[in-house]
Every structure is written in structure tokens, then in C-alpha cells.
Design a protein around this nucleic acid. Structure first.
Lengths: 234, 234
DNA sequence: GTGCATCTTTGCGCCTTCGCAACGACATCG
DNA sequence: CGATGTCGTTGCGAAGGCGCAAAGATGCAC
């Protein structure tokens, strides 16, 4: 918990078009919290007491089945809002949010949502736009799961992570947070075994380099061919 | 195209808490259109010129892959809004909407969205709540596709259709619009062959009765057991 | 009433993917 | 620096579900 300087959030598209005084007023209602790696920011089914803006780090949003299987709904990067169930008329969080690395996030009490979105229409509009984008992304994922083979789905998932958090290194583009085979499996609806086999095969072909909780894409273009099924079967 | 009487929409939750004069003003900007069975209300990639409210009938929202495969995103029933891409900051429709039966829908030009939602906050709020619900529903679907076998997915899909449009008959609960094996396959990410086999097996067990483009659920409770995987393998 | 288009059923072989199991590698911590 | 736990790899067998193909049903149009 602590003060937040306006400059930390002034550049975010989320707050585009809001005057400095407005930002200060928005921030006045927020509190900043640090979350240790692997801790939960909120949990599925829990009362939705707040919504969040990630300032630093990476969040993994996970939905669990009654049988205890987990599915990764999405990753959140710095600058994105999350836990906005409250903004959408829900009273409980539909998923659990884990800090993938040490994170810092702002939070506002749910009760402030209507107030903020009314007072700063562009903030509301930007948020809804984000929700709309996520709905489309999720539909895309449904389509992928319905029509593609595992190999394509995993390739697509990696490419999406690259887009979101790719970081250039001298070997290629690195996914900028620890991610295991199991994690990738939970994003794509397969098993860690199958993911491991795929990554091994791709590494042999020189598409990627990977290690413990680490994936670097060496040849994004070829990976894209795989994702589109234009790659000959091995 | 034509006039719409206020009474047609006054009872909808979407317009709850809006005065009669407000409704009239909302309707003044709308136009009513009839769509013949199997016609498209709008098409994927098309400019999002309007958003819609279904007054009567059933709509199938379909997303196509570049390879021409189709996935049913959802069914829309009377009273629901659809084509609200515009409300979410998109400029094109992300999917195609087909009239499953003869339909009647109201439409408003996209440009009216901001005006209406500003003037009638509860209308805006209800719409966003709907979007939130759909996002959750879609996530649920992702989880199902990631963790369940085809049999469970198909059972879940049928149960969802029952919930949405089930109509009691003397044989059981009927899905109230024509739906083919192919349609069910496109909802669940499988093939019409597999769906046909499943329905046949369920019919033998007395769970359902089905015919050409028609499914009646005789024993919803047992179907729920199948959906939850609590049914012994055949 | 007859013909045609569409939808449905069902058999069979194959292939992708899973499940299980065992082993190997790497990092961390005391 | 060695022990321990977590994560990754890989082999093998099983099977769920797909693809293809052909035949059977049903409703609609003329």
C-alpha cells in the first residue's frame, strides 16, 4: 500500500484524454500493493471487492474446474486492468489471479466503479473497449480450439505471448516471464507431455530455443507457418 | 422496416427503469426489419453500421476461419441484443449473424450508441452487463473445450440450449428451433458424425428423442450426469 | 405423387493425442 | 557441496475421435 505518482499512469492509453487533476482524483481512490511471486491477488468465487490495474509484473488468470483442472484464461501485462468483474455486474471473481513474478498493482474498491466511469467517460469507454477486445480474443480461442490441432494451437499461443510480452535478445524473442510446459498446456488444452514433445521437435528444427521455464522464439516466421498449418507434417 | 409499439420492448430487462417517454425516444431512432429464414443480418468483416435487438426468432452467430470452417459463437433469442461490436469499439463485425427462422429485429445506427448509453445510463449498464456475461460464458466454453471429452461438451451444449430456448412438450423439453447435427458439431468443436453417434446412443438409452433438425431432451437429469462425466462409459 | 436435395446414420481404418511411467536435468537451500 | 524438490524429456501402449464412404430417411417443390 502507498502513494502513487501521477506520472506512473499518465502515459497509459487507458487514461488518455484525462486531465492531470482528473488523474490525481482517480489515484486518490486507489491503493498500491506489492504482490510476491506466486501469490494470489484474488481468488475464484471470492467476493469481488476491488478492480485492479497492473503497474509492474505479469499476472496469470486461471479458472479451475470442479474436478480441479486448471485453465489459463489469459496473462495480464503492465498497464492492463484486470479483476473487472465488478464493472460487468458480477459480484464474485470468475477466476483466480496469480502473480507470475513480483508485481505491483493499483486497486480501487468495486463501489468506485460507477462513480469513476461516470465522471471520466473516456476511462469507462476505454475499459469497455478492453472488455470487447477480450471477448473477441476469447472467441478466437474458441475457434482455434474447435478447428485446430494441438500443434497449431500451441504455436498460436506462443505467438500471442510474443506479441504481448516478447523481448528481443541476441538469440531471438524471449517470453519475458517464467513459463512452464504445464502452463502452455493449460493455455492450449493439452498436456505438458505433448507440449514438451512439440517444443523439442521445434527446437530440433531451429524454430525455438527453450529451457527451464523459458522459451525463446528464434524464427517467428516459421512458427507462424506452423500456426497456420502451412507446415508439412514432421 | 416499420413502426414499433412501445409495449413490444417495455417488458425487457434491457430497458428496465426507463420511463415511457424514454422508450419512445429510443424507439424513434430504431428501425424494425424482418429477416427471412437463412438470411444474413450482417456478415463477418463487414462495416459495423448498426447494432440490433432481436424481437422475435432465433439468430445463429457464426465465425468462419480463413480455411472456411465455421464455428457457432452463440445463439441469440428474442429480447437479446447482438451485433454490438460497435458498442465495444470495433468498426467491423467479428462474426456473421444468420436468421435460423424468420426473425424480426430492431436496429440502431452505430453512431447512436454513445448517445443512447449516455442518455440512458441503465441501458448502457445493462448492455455492458450482457457483454460481461457473454465473456464469462465464452470463458466457460474455453474451459470445457480444454478439459472435457466430446461427449461431455455436447451434453453441456444441449443443456445450455435447453436453458435458453427449451420448450416443454409432452415428450420432454424441445429445443425450439431447427438445429442439425452439423450445427451441434460447430458448437462443440467436433464433427457431425460424432454428434450423430452420440445422439443415437443417448436415444437408445432414453435420454433424448431426436429427428431431422430436432432434438427433444427426455431426461435432463441424466443428461446432466453425462455432462459432468458422472456417467459410466458406454 | 414423385423426385430431389438435404440431413442422418453407421461401418471401418487410421492417426493424433493422452496416460502412465521412468529417467534425467537443473536450481535452490542449508 | 551435496541433498531435495521441481521441472523437463521420452518411450510405449491405448483409445477417443476423425475422415471417408455409402446407404437410409425425411421433407419440400413441382
Amino acid at each position: 500500500m502507498g502513494r502513487v505518482d501521477r506520472s506512473l499512469i499518465a502515459g497509459l492509453p487507458l487514461f488518455a484524454g484525462i486531465a492531470p487533476e482528473g488523474l490525481d482524483r482517480i489515484l486518490a481512490g486507489a491503493r498500491s500493493t506489492r504482490y510476491a511471486k506466486d501469490s494470489a491477488i484474488f481468488e475464484q468465487e471470492e467476493e469481488a471487492h476491488a478492480f485492479f490495474l497492473l503497474l509492474d509484473g505479469h499476472i496469470r488468470v486461471v479458472r479451475s474446474t470442479p474436478e480441479g483442472q486448471q485453465v489459463i484464461v489469459r496473462y495480464i501485462s503492465a498497464g492492463e486492468i484486470f479483476g473487472i468483474a465488478s464493472a460487468l455486474g458480477r459480484t464474485t471473481y470468475p477466476a483466480t489471479a496469480f502473480a507470475v513474478v513480483d508485481c505491483v498493482a493499483l486497486s480501487w474498491p468495486t463501489s468506485m466503479w460507477s462513480e469513476l466511469s461516470a465522471q471520466f467517460p473516456s476511462f469507462g469507454a476505454n475499459t469497455y473497449k478492453t472488455v470487447g477486445t477480450r471477448l473477441q480474443d476469447t472467441h478466437t480461442r474458441v475457434v482455434e480450439m474447435a478447428t485446430e490441432q494441438v500443434e497449431q494451437r500451441v504455436a498460436h499461443a506462443l505467438l500471442r505471448l510474443l506479441e504481448q510480452t516478447g523481448k528481443k535478445t541476441d538469440e531471438g524473442i524471449l517470453i519475458d516471464f517464467p513459463i512452464s510446459r504445464q502452463d502452455i498446456a493449460e493455455m492450449t488444452g493439452t498436456t505438458l507431455h505433448t507440449v514438451s514433445r512439440l517444443l523439442s521437435a521445434w527446437e530440433d528444427k531451429g524454430l525455438i530455443r527453450s529451457g527451464r521455464q523459458k522459451v525463446t522464439v528464434v524464427d517467428p516466421h516459421k512458427l507462424m507457418l506452423v500456426a497456420n498449418g502451412r507446415s508439412e507434417r514432421s
